[in-house]
């Protein structure tokens, strides 16, 4: 297994963002986590990417413990955040060079890795222009190329197509499908049912708990009455129709700094 987590949990003050999440992901497998706003998806990804320390449970990525062996875990991951994590004053080439240094790519291999990533992202012509002014699709391609540069074993995508136009979404999915075909394991969150259905398995998460996990057909059969039940119907059956705006706190907290570092 490339990823295993058992009873993972995290609270923020009195709010339990993730209560008890357990699942595993095999090498080359793809899993989509879907859930309402504030369900605990981003907090779960935060813990698995070592940005957040779990209060409870444990998880391993490529055999390394996320809490005790964070550096090894980080080396095995390629991550795309919900919003672009870029410095708009840098160019694509500078962004990729910086990433190569952060992941300790050997100096002699860096230039070739940067050129390869630029080609993969289709940004060779814009390689030395500051990112300010790039389209959302161009930034996403750059971020995906960057996430792959150090040869990760697991790709973690937090709502990767958010804010992209249909062309940008199609292009990104073509790239993700290509990576999956090459055996890359993918863990993603999304609100788009059609995107979730492209993955091997789907996990439905709500109020910090993994309510169901399986293939699309398994979920449809178990919670929709028949194998061809609509995924959205299954989702609503499990999570209800009530609006969840009030629970939208925890994902925002993933990106917040603590008020005290001690």
């Amino acid at each position: 297994m490339i990823l295993e987590c058992h009873g993972l949990g995290r609270s923020f003050g009195g709010t339990e963002a993730v209560a008890d999440v357990s699942f595993a992901l095999a090498e080359g497998e793809s899993l989509a986590l879907i859930g309402p706003n504030g369900a605990g998806k981003s907090t779960t990804l935060g813990m698995l990417t070592t940005a957040l320390r779990p209060d409870r449970g444990r998880a391993t990525v490529a055999g390394a413990d996320i809490a005790a062996q964070a550096a090894q875990v980080r080396a095995s991951l390629g991550v795309l955040f919900q919003e672009p994590a870029l410095d708009e004053r840098l160019s694509p080439r500078q962004t990729l060079r910086l990433h190569a240094a952060m992941h300790a790519l050997p100096r002699h291999a860096r230039a070739a890795a940067v050129e390869k990533a630029l080609d993969w992202a289709g940004l060779r012509e814009q390689a030395d222009r500051p990112l300010r002014g790039f389209s959302g699709g161009m930034k996403r391609r750059l971020e995906l190329a960057r996430a792959l540069m150090h040869g990760p074993r697991l790709l973690v995508l937090d709502e990767p197509t958010l804010g992209l136009d249909p062309q940008g979404r199609l292009d990104l999915w073509a790239r993700i499908d290509g990576l999956r075909a090459e055996g890359m394991a993918v863990l993603m969150t999304t609100h788009a049912m059609a995107e979730a259905e492209r993955c091997d398995r789907i996990g439905i998460i709500d109020k910090g708990r993994l309510l169901a996990i399986g293939t699309r057909a398994e979920l449809a059969l178990a919670h929709g009455g028949h194998a061809h039940a609509d995924l959205e119907q299954v989702f609503l059956t499990l999570t209800g129709r009530a609006l969840r705006d009030a629970f939208a706190g925890p994902p925002a907290r993933v990106l917040r700094l603590p008020r005290r570092s001690a």
């Binding site: 980080r74 991550v79 919003e83 994590a85 870029l86 410095d87 992941h103 990106l255 917040r256 700094l257």
Partner: peptide, 19 residues
């Protein structure tokens, strides 16, 4: 660093193995 940590490149740097 506050903005960089919330919305910028530093998020990516902090989940890299860089010491």
């Amino acid at each position: 660093l506050v903005y960089d940590r919330q919305h910028g490149l530093l998020r990516q740097i902090l989940i890299s193995p860089a010491p």
